[in-house]
Simulated scan of single mutants.
Amino acid sequence: MCFNRLLVVGMLVLTAGSLHAQDLSQVCHATSSYDLTLQQGQLIFDRAQPAPTRVVVGSGTLQTDGQNVPLNAEDQDRLALFQRELLALVPRVKVVIHRGVDVAVQTVQQEADSLNLDAGTQAELQRRLATDAANLHQRVAASQSTHDWHGDAANQYANQIAGDIAPLIASAMGQQALSAAMSGDLQQAAALRDQASDLTTGFQARLQQRLQVLRPDIQALCPDIQRLAALQQGIRASHGRPLNLLQIEQ
């Protein structure tokens, strides 16, 4: 469901300003074309197209594109259960996100440890990483909408974090290379350039590998996501269209 986009931020790569995720569509085979916003007593699903573009679920009631949808008693009960179980699932998703943030931060720190940075740069890097991670944890905890974590909003935040960390590492490595070159150690200067290149080109693959530790946590969510998909089966939106808030690919 919309949890794909929630999970993306949890796997935020704290360098290069890009995003990665253990995608629910791969692990649980779950997809959705909707974004999700949590409001008091309501779940709001929205998308650009096709209709219905806005679905509101609240306490056994259903509204699609501004029209109240008549429901029988069974469908009311199923939608009420759908709402309760989805709300119960959100904190569990956020736990995985928070762990993904921690894994990303640890990976950046481990990569930095391999660069033999000076003590001052290491200390400043640790300070910035801790600050950025704390801010990200706070944003995840407070977020009530997947709109917070895709498009311009996510890119802007990713670029902000990358802009905070990447120049610090680049400056320290550049200074090392310059010092080596000025001392006549051209071999060491070339080695530092190669090391910087590997950090840029190989980091994403190494991070993705380390994020495999999250796979069991994501798999544990799958039965509940599949149950959500089953609960909404057969419920119709306005004009008889299938609701299809969530699809499970076979």
Rank of each mutant, 00 (worst) to 15 (best):
M1K: 02
C2L: 09
F3V: 10
F3L: 01
N4W: 06
L7C: 02
V9D: 09
G10C: 06
M11T: 13
L12Q: 14
L14G: 12
L14T: 07
A16H: 14
G17H: 06
Q22I: 15
Q22C: 13
L24T: 12
L24D: 07
L24K: 00
Q26F: 06
C28M: 09
C28F: 03
H29P: 00
T31A: 10
S32W: 05
S32F: 11
S32T: 15
L36A: 07
Q39G: 14
Q39T: 15
Q40V: 07
Q42T: 04
L43A: 01
I44D: 12
F45W: 07
F45I: 06
Q49V: 08
A51N: 10
P52S: 08
G58C: 02
G58H: 13
Q63H: 11
D65M: 08
G66H: 04
N68E: 11
P70R: 04
L71D: 08
L71Y: 10
A73F: 14
E74Y: 13
Q76T: 13
A80V: 08
L81H: 13
F82Q: 04
F82V: 01
R84T: 15
L86G: 03
L86P: 05
A88K: 12
A88H: 10
P91M: 00
V95E: 13
V96W: 07
I97N: 11
I97M: 14
R99E: 09
G100K: 08
V101I: 12
V103R: 04
Q106L: 14
Q106W: 03
Q110H: 11
S114Q: 14
L115I: 01
D118H: 00
A119M: 14
T121N: 05
E124V: 06
R127I: 03
R127M: 05
R128A: 04
A130D: 09
T131N: 08
A133D: 07
R139K: 10
Q144C: 04
Q144R: 09
S145N: 07
S145D: 03
S145W: 07
T146L: 07
D148I: 02
G151W: 04
G151L: 01
G151E: 05
D152F: 05
A153W: 08
N155G: 11
N155F: 09
Q156W: 09
Q160W: 12
I161L: 06
D164G: 09
A166M: 11
A166P: 00
A166F: 11
P167Q: 04
I169Y: 01
I169K: 01
S171G: 11
A172R: 03
A172G: 04
Q176M: 02
Q176H: 03
L178Q: 12
L178H: 10
A180F: 01
M182F: 07
D185M: 02
L186Q: 13
Q188R: 13
A189D: 02
A189M: 09
L192G: 08
R193K: 15
D194T: 09
D194S: 12
D194Q: 15
S197N: 15
D198A: 15
L199P: 00
T200V: 13
T201D: 14
F203L: 06
F203D: 03
Q209H: 10
R210H: 08
Q212D: 04
D217T: 07
I218V: 15
Q219K: 11
Q219R: 12
L221A: 02
C222G: 11
P223S: 05
P223H: 11
Q226C: 03
R227L: 09
L228Y: 03
L231P: 13
R236Q: 15
H239T: 08
R241V: 11
L243M: 03
N244G: 08
L245R: 02
I248H: 00
I248P: 00
